[in-house]
Amino acid sequence: MSLIIDNISFSYGDRTILNRLSLEVPTGTTTAVVAPSGAGKSTLLRIIAGLFTPSSGSIILDGKNLSLVPTHLRSIGMVFQDNQLFPHLNVYDNVMFGLRMAKTEKMIAAERCRDLLNLVGLSEIAKQSVATLSGGESKRVALARSLAPSPKLLLLDEPLTGLDSELHDRLALDLQQILHATSTTALLVTHSIPEAEIISDSIHRLQTTVDIVPDGEKK
């Protein structure tokens, strides 16, 4: 399930945000794109998810061009920077959301949901309101929620921003292990090279409005 980003450009008004960007994410691996703030990292993820339309170029997942496929049919999950948990649903129902949308059979969905909550270590607080969660817990719920519908590709937008340093390091390791355990194909964008080194298998650098510069395979 490889992802190919082919010559993507994106402008907002007169401002060019991405300029002929190309990148490949091999199946079952985690690729990181490292760039400073304002370089268009989030924009790139939004284009892949189908939330923004690129001015040119194409996104190809598993050999299929996604240009005309709406977001909800792309099977691309996304962990947002500030999690975006549904405030009207508890932890369990947030994780169940994607499975409900896909009309997954109830027993199977419930089991998958329990497995994921176990995986992220939150099965104890499944019935809690998301308003009561700590930063780390919210992040884990967001991760479990986006993994639940078994997306072909998972996008991670600065997933560890805003966490204190101890939690940050622990969660980075957990994230790497979870992505590995679930053999998820993932694309991570971050401004932190150490974070990218822990979580991902390969790292690319993105400079402002310039093509991606490969940084070589990680050992």
């Binding site: 939004r46 998810a49 189908g50 939330l51 709406p70 977001t71 909800h72 049919l73 792309r74 099977s75 691309i76 999950g77 996304m78 947002f80 500030d82 975006q84 549904f86 405030p87 009207h88 649903l89 959301f97 994607g98 409900r100 949308m101 896909a102 929620r145 986006s146 639940a148 519908p149 996008l155």
Partner: peptide, 24 residues
């Protein structure tokens, strides 16, 4: 982004209305 996140979880525009916008 909350609406975007519903869409990345596979919710169609109609499902987003039913499960996110209306409950909120």
């Amino acid at each position: 982004q909350l609406i975007d996140s519903a869409r990345t979880l596979g919710a169609s525009p109609l499902q987003t209305w039913r499960h996110v916008i209306m409950p909120l």
